[in-house]
Design a protein around this nucleic acid. Sequence first.
DNA 1: GTCTATATCATGATAGAC
DNA 2: GTCTATCATGATATAGAC
Lengths: 234, 234
Amino acid sequence: MNLRAIKPLHETQTRILDAAEELFMQHGFEGASMRMLTARAGVNLAAINYHFGSKDALVEAVFRRRLDPENAERIAELDRLEKASGGAPLAPATIIRAFVGTSLRMIQDEKKGGRNFIRLLGRTYTDPAKRIRALIGQLYAPAMARFKDAFAKALPELPREELVWRLHFMFGTLSYTLAATDTLELIAGCKPEDRYDAAVLESRLTAFLAAGLLAPVPQRTGQRATDESVKQAA
Amino acid sequence: MNLRAIKPLHETQTRILDAAEELFMQHGFEGASMRMLTARAGVNLAAINYHFGSKDALVEAVFRRRLDPENAERIAELDRLEKASGGAPLAPATIIRAFVGTSLRMIQDEKKGGRNFIRLLGRTYTDPAKRIRALIGQLYAPAMARFKDAFAKALPELPREELVWRLHFMFGTLSYTLAATDTLELIAGCKPEDRYDAAVLESRLTAFLAAGLLAPVPQRTGQRATDESVKQAA
DNA sequence: GTCTATATCATGATAGAC
DNA sequence: GTCTATCATGATATAGAC
């Protein structure tokens, strides 16, 4: 999809990308300085500008290295599923599993970035910098359109606007689940053991998301929520 | 709950907090410099250190001003609902609406921070800086424990571990929905009109979350997800 | 309490020797 | 391609006049 993603990398470039992936996650893009990055990578301070041109370009390279192959894989998986079904619409849970599974498989595969990149990614969806979010959105756009069509075909009776909102909710649940590290302990009061077991998490997430996607459509009365209406809803 | 939250503020402090709320959202905590903040507030560069002690302390003050009253309100609402029901367990959707509604009502109330603060908050759950996340977690802890108990009472048959995961998913969906500004356009291909209508959003979110919370519990076979098992699930 | 002026330091980027 | 040395800039924080 993008030449940069498949161009063989110089070893120095790879070491810089690895260091950046880790330190961007720990300190954010502004917080991780070029001095920190090059020190961790064991290369010279000038190497980032030499190999990538600027710190901004490095940020983009960090995401391209992982996301271009990931989204290609995601789309290919959906293609395979649709071909296997022979034209019959796929079950919503199947489509969800294809999307979620690709992300979760990255957690267990260090060559695909592992847990560190997936957490960095989850955080970046809501980064303050608009250009960062725009970059992520651009890298996701083809896969997003492809999956939206698949869901629309699987749920022809669901109003298109409701579908869009629910995809938004689903994407949010996924990205937050991947990014968050503290809320779970806060709720649980302890550290669950299977937290990063991709297979178990995939089942939990798919069950939750599929139920939400198939929820009854709320009637739109347009009324404001008040303390009284909330109480009466009990 | 905290004296600082109810201590009457000097006007300069208020103007600094207002400026910080807006600029932290646009540029992040590292990206918004004290020069930017004081310029926007129309106060002197030294005023932040004089009134708050440091930039870090200002960050904390920004969140305390909004979250302490918000979580007190959230808990009070749950108390009221439980008292009104006279000991009978509440419907899960009612508890969800109490939690979600409090956040969404902030969007429409400029005195409570409005849309800007709620987006800042949503982003901060996944902030790179650990001390920032710890602060947010600490401010939320009492409300979180209170709502967890209410859900446990409403859903005695749901395994406790599954409940914890689902609360995690729900909190994620809410925080992402409040924070994200681009994904929705990306999915929809256009800007939905009712995007910030709190009443409509509350209905959509509650329907989605309630369905997810009540989803059938997936059986835990412990098997890894493979390409083949995913395909067969279709 | 507010302001100016400044101290001190870290940042991203680059020039030029090797 | 890699290094050292350095630049210009902007950061947080503070000292001291008013």
